[in-house]
Lab assay of single mutants.
Amino acid sequence: MQRVNMIMAESPGLITICLLGYLLSAECTVFLDHENANKILNRPKRYNSGKLEEFVQGNLERECMEEKCSFEEAREVFENTERTTEFWKQYVDGDQCESNPCLNGGSCKDDINSYECWCPFGFEGKNCELDVTCNIKNGRCEQFCKNSADNKVVCSCTEGYRLAENQKSCEPAVPFPCGRVSVSQTSKLTRAETVFPDVDYVNSTEAETILDNITQSTQSFNDFTRVVGGEDAKPGQFPWQVVLNGKVDAFCGGSIVNEKWIVTAAHCVETGVKITVVAGEHNIEETEHTEQKRNVIRIIPHHNYNAAINKYNHDIALLELDEPLVLNSYVTPICIADKEYTNIFLKFGSGYVSGWGRVFHKGRSALVLQYLRVPLVDRATCLRSTKFTIYNNMFCAGFHEGGRDSCQGDSGGPHVTEVEGTSFLTGIISWGEECAMKGKYGIYTKVSRYVNWIKEKTKLT
Rank of each mutant, 00 (worst) to 15 (best):
N5P: 09
P12M: 14
G13P: 14
C18M: 11
S25R: 08
A26L: 07
C28F: 02
C28L: 03
C28D: 04
D33I: 10
D33C: 04
I40K: 04
K45W: 01
K45R: 09
R46N: 02
K51E: 04
L52D: 09
L60T: 03
R62Q: 06
E66V: 05
K68C: 04
C69H: 00
R75S: 07
R83V: 10
K89N: 14
Y91E: 05
D95T: 12
S99M: 11
N100W: 10
G106R: 03
D110H: 12
D111T: 06
P120G: 09
K126F: 12
T133K: 13
C141T: 00
Q143Y: 03
C145R: 02
K146C: 06
N147M: 10
D150A: 10
V153I: 11
V153P: 11
C157T: 00
R162L: 11
Q167F: 11
K168M: 13
C170D: 01
P175Y: 05
F176M: 05
R180N: 02
S182I: 08
S182M: 11
S182R: 10
S184N: 15
S184Q: 08
T186A: 13
S187Y: 13
L189Y: 15
A192Q: 09
T194A: 13
V199S: 09
V199N: 15
V202H: 09
V202C: 06
N203W: 07
E208I: 15
E208P: 15
T209R: 10
L211G: 13
L211H: 14
I214C: 13
Q216R: 07
S217L: 06
D223Y: 07
T225V: 12
V227F: 14
G246F: 05
K247H: 09
S255R: 00
I256A: 01
V257Y: 03
N258D: 04
N258L: 01
K260G: 04
A265I: 00
A266F: 02
H267W: 03
C268T: 00
G272E: 08
G272I: 07
V277L: 04
E281D: 12
E285T: 09
T287E: 15
T287V: 15
T287D: 14
T290E: 06
N295T: 11
R298P: 00
I300S: 03
P301D: 03
Y305C: 01
A307D: 06
N310V: 03
N310R: 05
K311D: 04
N313R: 11
I316T: 00
I316E: 00
L319Q: 00
E323R: 07
E323W: 06
P324K: 06
L325Q: 00
V326K: 10
L327P: 04
L327R: 06
Y330K: 05
T332K: 08
I334A: 04
I334Q: 00
N343G: 09
N343Q: 07
I344H: 15
V353T: 09
G357L: 06
V359W: 10
V359G: 15
K362C: 04
V368T: 15
L369Q: 07
Q370F: 02
R373K: 15
P375R: 13
P375V: 07
P375W: 07
V377K: 05
R379K: 15
A380G: 12
C382I: 03
T389N: 15
T389E: 14
N393G: 12
F395L: 01
H400V: 11
E401V: 09
D405K: 14
S406D: 15
S411P: 10
S411L: 15
G413L: 06
G413D: 06
T417K: 01
E420C: 08
L425K: 00
T426N: 01
G427L: 00
I428R: 01
G432W: 05
G439L: 04
G439Q: 08
Y441K: 03
T445G: 02
T445D: 01
K446F: 01
V451E: 04
V451Q: 04
W453Q: 01
I454D: 01
E456A: 09
K457C: 09
K457I: 15
L460E: 11
